[in-house]
Design a protein around this nucleic acid. Sequence first.
DNA 1: TAAAAATAAATTGCATACAATTTAATTGCA
DNA 2: TGCAATTAAATTGTATGCAATTTATTTTTA
Lengths: 148, 148
Amino acid sequence: MSKYDCLKLENQLCFPLYACAKAVTRHYKPLLDEFDLTYTQYITMMVMWEKKSASVKEIGECLYLDSGTLTPLINKLESKGYIEKHRSDDDARGVVVTITEAGKKLRDKMVKVPTAMGGCVALSEEEAGELYTLLYKILNHFDEIDAE
Amino acid sequence: MSKYDCLKLENQLCFPLYACAKAVTRHYKPLLDEFDLTYTQYITMMVMWEKKSASVKEIGECLYLDSGTLTPLINKLESKGYIEKHRSDDDARGVVVTITEAGKKLRDKMVKVPTAMGGCVALSEEEAGELYTLLYKILNHFDEIDAE
DNA sequence: TAAAAATAAATTGCATACAATTTAATTGCA
DNA sequence: TGCAATTAAATTGTATGCAATTTATTTTTA
């Protein structure tokens, strides 16, 4: 019982969160290498599969990423042929990102990825649900703080 | 109900994990800026506060980091005066990192950080415990997989 | 309506992460 | 013993992340 206990690694909640997130993306790598995508590129494609078309700002809001991360990432996805960029007609400051046919086809090939990854995580359906709820509770609270 | 549902961002467990870990380290930043430490430097100091002395390899095992990340990070902590590096007597391949007096003093100043951060996370004691358990369940399972 | 404020991307700079390679030293075994 | 295999750090290269600044454009407002 020391006043320093709060600074012990084993008493942190943030550390397993940090370590777990890294472990997950690390274990995604071999699955995604097959498609020549990084994890961040993969979740960006998830946004594009759902939206078909979105501004950099909108993608950033979905993924909690800013233009500093997204601009080079989107350029890479464009050079791979999965998306296209063009200036917005409505607002010349904005860039609209649109999914290509190749990008849509990629979706069919990648449907097997989540199942393959799910096998790694080893939580029951119920535990996964609990974790999901707790993580979004934290995320939503941060959103509220940041909105101020 | 589409076969693509598994590729929706909202159905991912890994994404909130990834986003949450980033949000947490982002919210640590203003607290750690005061001490001129990054989050990774902070958790490295946690290991040093507990162990007083450890090899780069041991630190890496605690934090799930490799020498590619730790070598430059440890050099920075050394230049700040919080730790010292020297070759191991037992094994000249190894480097032993030791905490300095300044490093020990830093601990006293930083005891308030975990409380300040805890206020941000907004989970009950019980929820925090659940999350902790679930995260280590995933981490431990990855450790088992990786040990093979 | 013209200047000020705000906004969207891009750019710059710094700090991770981590795979892969290299270097130096140690182990293990033939 | 002597060399092959292993190991610990360091190094190299690529890809984030994100704060801060810059540029171009749009909105607000005096």
